[in-house]
Amino acid sequence: MDRVLSVEQLNASYRKNKVLDNVSFEVLPGTLTAIVGPNGAGKSTLLKAILDLHPRLSGVVSCFGSPYAQVKSRIGYVPQRGSVDWDFPTNALDVVMMGLYGKIGWLKWPKRKHRELALAALEEMGLGNYADRQISQLSGGQQQRVFLARALVQDADLYFLDEPLAGVDAATEKVIMDTLNTLKNKGRTVMVVHHDLQTVEEYFDHVLMLNRTVIAHGKTADTFNQANIMRTYGGSLRWMGDRLG
């Protein structure tokens, strides 16, 4: 099967510290992968380095067999919710529309059909009634769903999500996971930075265990075991032993 994403010998640093050390892995189409690892393991940096948002010291990233820059339009990205200022004067529909800017074309104005696409994506996220709502007046979970709607309208083949489940309530968590599964079932590929080890097995079919370098990567059933968790988190997660013995 063709690789959707292939990362070879990726190195990246943040100031003086090396954050990613010879990271190499390949991702198959139609998979839903969790990227897990302790704080400072380089999970967010990995996404940003793949997306050219963080400088790479070395390494090759190719998506669909081409350099990332050539296939940008086929890739969707959901940054961490905390990475933007939600007091920015705009409404939910406007934020979702941003996902269409690539399709609309630079320096061109959106048309009615773009508005309708954005509205449909909001409705899919259960936020149809919130289109005109100022974004600071949305709850954390609603803001996360707005971000996801913005990624959905991109209609991408490969998605990267940075902690989409951080700080959201159970209802939003379900909506988001249902959406990601729908994408997967349509043959799209999804990679998610994830922090909750208890739900990895339930939610994801693949897992990439990262601590500056790839500790383990593969099907969740084969890979997500106590030995690999200990190697990734350095034994600081003794309590997991009871569950995963």
Partner: peptide, 22 residues
């Protein structure tokens, strides 16, 4: 005015904009 939506994207979420190629 010409780069109306580009400014909006850049000011609100430059990272996402970068992902789109802005």
């Amino acid at each position: 005015l010409v780069a109306w939506k580009e400014w909006k994207l850049f000011l609100f979420d430059p990272q996402f904009g970068g992902g789109l190629g802005l």
